[in-house]
Simulated scan of single mutants.
Amino acid sequence: MSGAERLRVLIVRTSSLGDVVQAVPVLTALRRALPAARLGWVVEEGYAPLLAGHPALDDLLPVALRRWGRAPLRPAHLAELGGFLDRLTGFGADVALDLMGSHKGAAIAALSLAGRRIGLAARCRREPESALWINEAVANEAPHAVDRYLSLLAPLGIPSGPASFAPEALFARARPPLPAAVAAGGPYLFLHPGAAWGNKRLPAATWADALAQIARASGLRAWIGAAPGEETLAREIAARAPGSAAIAAPDLPSLGTLLREARLVLGGDTGPLHLAHALGSPVLAVMGPTDPGRHGPYRAPERVVAHRLPCSFCHRRMAEPRPCLTAIPAGEIAARALALLAGNA
């Protein structure tokens, strides 16, 4: 066995959902190139079910930075943090891959005590000053996040492609059945209308109109994901779109099942849309403030509806949708969805 095969490699990508999903090809590429290496991943506890039991992953190191941050001095949280740091150093990483480009990710890589801490060069990072925490910088400004992540394998002599999400390996330990009402209703569309950015959320009336047009032409029922905090939005769309209904997605594994079984998943530039694409489900993303070439479904430009306006792709977070989204008509979304369903897109 060569020294390279005995490497212990730690992936640091804690959040958010879409970013964790888009980092999965790094794991599959590492395992393909280093079949005997020990591979670990630091991820926020809420996203751990996505990776738990993944056959390419030896050690999953959940972290609760978001929860701890709400009460950082609580004794129980300090004890949990100490336990995490013990597990982090106990992994014994030779290489830490900082896929975050931030102080948080680079600090975790440094705290792992890995001798090699690989990350993007300062000019390519979200927080340029965080490059001080790494000791091997990769200058790569590839448009898409997946390709930027894969570029960090170059110092290890590992080819960046072909990129694989290995959908059969995701949610290996958590695959709940479809809700009974969904299973009984036959083939369906799934819409995830929510987004953390207000300007990534298409108006409810537009979504409802698009769903109604798709239903009339295809006969498919639409289930609208009601994620925690987004129940009102889901119910509003369902009330406007005849034959559709809101469905709770209370946790990540339940959402994964709904996405995996859908005939088509619609949404914006959000984690659930990227998750559906990684799971191998057909998707259609409606995008405005973010560039499809950088943030759209990986290598699937035909699965995006976007208008290029002077204000488009600003990558600025705002409270309400702007013309880059509001100018997209429901009919255009429905036509593209129907073409995808027919296999003509």
Rank of each mutant, 00 (worst) to 15 (best):
Trp207Leu: 02
Ala208Asn: 06
Ala208Trp: 01
Ala208Leu: 05
Ala208Thr: 04
Ala208Gln: 03
Ala208Arg: 01
Leu211Thr: 01
Ile214Asp: 01
Ala217Lys: 13
Ala217Tyr: 04
Ala217Met: 05
Leu220Gly: 06
Leu220Gln: 04
Leu220Val: 02
Arg221His: 09
Ala222Met: 03
Trp223Ala: 00
Gly225Ile: 01
Ala226Phe: 02
Ala227Asn: 08
Pro228Thr: 10
Gly229Ala: 13
Glu231Lys: 05
Glu231Gly: 15
Glu231His: 04
Leu233Tyr: 03
Leu233Arg: 03
Ala234Lys: 13
Arg235Glu: 15
Glu236Leu: 03
Glu236His: 04
Glu236Ala: 14
Ile237Gly: 01
Ala238Thr: 01
Arg240Ile: 02
Ala241Pro: 07
Pro242Asp: 04
Gly243Glu: 02
Ser244Val: 01
Ala246Glu: 08
Ile247Tyr: 00
Ile247Thr: 02
Ala248Leu: 14
Ala248Phe: 11
Ala249Leu: 15
Ala249Tyr: 00
Pro250Cys: 12
Asp251Trp: 08
Asp251Tyr: 06
Leu252Arg: 11
Leu252Cys: 10
Leu252Phe: 06
Pro253Arg: 08
Ser254Trp: 01
Leu255Pro: 02
Leu255Gly: 00
Thr257Tyr: 03
Thr257Cys: 08
Leu259Ser: 06
Arg260Trp: 05
Glu261Val: 01
Ala262Tyr: 03
Ala262Trp: 00
Ala262Gln: 03
Arg263Trp: 10
Arg263Asp: 13
Arg263Glu: 15
Leu264Met: 09
Leu264Asp: 06
Val265Trp: 05
Leu266Val: 08
Gly268Val: 00
Gly268Asn: 02
Gly271Asp: 04
Pro272Gly: 12
Pro272Trp: 10
Pro272Met: 13
His274Phe: 12
His274Tyr: 13
Leu275Ser: 04
His277Thr: 07
Leu279Phe: 12
Leu279Val: 13
Ser281Ala: 15
Ser281Gly: 09
Ser281Ile: 03
Ser281His: 08
Pro282His: 08
Pro282Met: 07
Val283Asn: 04
Val286Ala: 11
Val286Trp: 05
Gly288Met: 12
Gly288Asp: 03
Pro289Met: 09
Thr290Gln: 06
Asp291His: 15
Asp291Ile: 11
Gly293Lys: 11
Arg294Val: 05
His295Cys: 11
His295Trp: 14
His295Glu: 14
Gly296Asp: 13
Pro297Cys: 10
Tyr298Glu: 11
Tyr298Val: 07
Ala300Pro: 08
Pro301Lys: 09
Pro301Cys: 09
Arg303Lys: 12
Arg303Cys: 12
Val304Asp: 07
Leu309Tyr: 07
Pro310Tyr: 14
Cys311Thr: 11
Ser312Phe: 10
Phe313Tyr: 15
Phe313Pro: 02
Phe313Lys: 11
Cys314Asp: 15
His315Pro: 00
His315Ile: 03
Arg316Phe: 08
Arg317Asp: 14
Met318Ala: 14
Glu320Asn: 11
Arg322Ser: 08
Arg322Cys: 14
Arg322Trp: 06
Cys324Thr: 07
Leu325Trp: 07
Leu325Cys: 10
Thr326Phe: 09
Thr326Gly: 10
Ala327Asn: 13
Ala327Cys: 10
Ala327Leu: 14
Pro329Lys: 04
Gly331Ser: 14
Gly331Thr: 15
Ala335Lys: 05
Ala335Arg: 14
Arg336Val: 01
Ala337Ile: 10
